[in-house]
């Protein structure tokens, strides 16, 4: 099958791959590039575990074709920590016991990051709305909501 060249920036680094036409970004990231932080829970856009940030917007990588990402800037949860220092959201998830099995966590953190990037001081309702596309089957939603609110407060204190 014909291969298509794909080039994008992933977590600050240039990446180039040849993929088969129709390859999803999730498949390209996980199986070609080796970034397994986006997870495949349903492969049909319903669970949110594969969420990544493409050019500042939250996207489901299982429904995004890799070939449409040429020139894009992509962020995944594995790229958030800098020099081993956790991102405030990661710190807050850790401190708030907002992980259980951990499978939904990278997608949750992506959704939360896009929220805080656009809305630095979200209300609880804003957080619930922002996470509404991400399923936590361990049903740990409350600690996750608290973690996002805590991270928002930490951010605004740092900015002040």
């Amino acid at each position: 099958m014909a291969k298509v060249p794909v080039q994008f920036t992933l977590n600050g680094r240039e990446k180039a791959e040849f993929v088969e036409g129709g390859t999803t970004l999730l498949h390209a990231l996980r199986d070609k590039i080796g970034d397994t932080s986006p997870k495949g829970g349903c492969h049909q856009g319903t669970c949110g575990a594969c969420s990544v940030i493409i050019d500042g917007e939250l996207k489901l990588s299982c429904l995004t074709l890799a070939e449409t990402c040429n020139g894009a800037t992509i962020t995944t949860t594995s790229g958030l920590a800098e020099a081993g220092v956790l991102h405030p959201l990661q710190r807050a998830f850790l401190d708030a016991f907002a992980t259980q099995c951990g499978f939904c966590t990278p997608g949750m953190i992506m959704a939360a990051k896009v929220l805080l990037d656009h809305t630095p001081n979200p209300s609880r309702d804003d957080v619930v709305e922002a996470l509404s596309g991400n399923i936590c089957r361990c049903t740990g939603y409350e600690p996750i909501i608290q973690a996002v609110l805590t991270a928002a407060r930490a951010n605004s204190q740092n900015a002040a």
Partner: peptide, 17 residues
């Protein structure tokens, strides 16, 4: 196991290729 979860580093079986 939580630090691995929040960093996206926890290796689930399907993360092995």
């Amino acid at each position: 196991d939580s630090p691995g979860h929040v960093m996206g580093k926890t290796a689930y079986f399907a993360d092995r290729n």
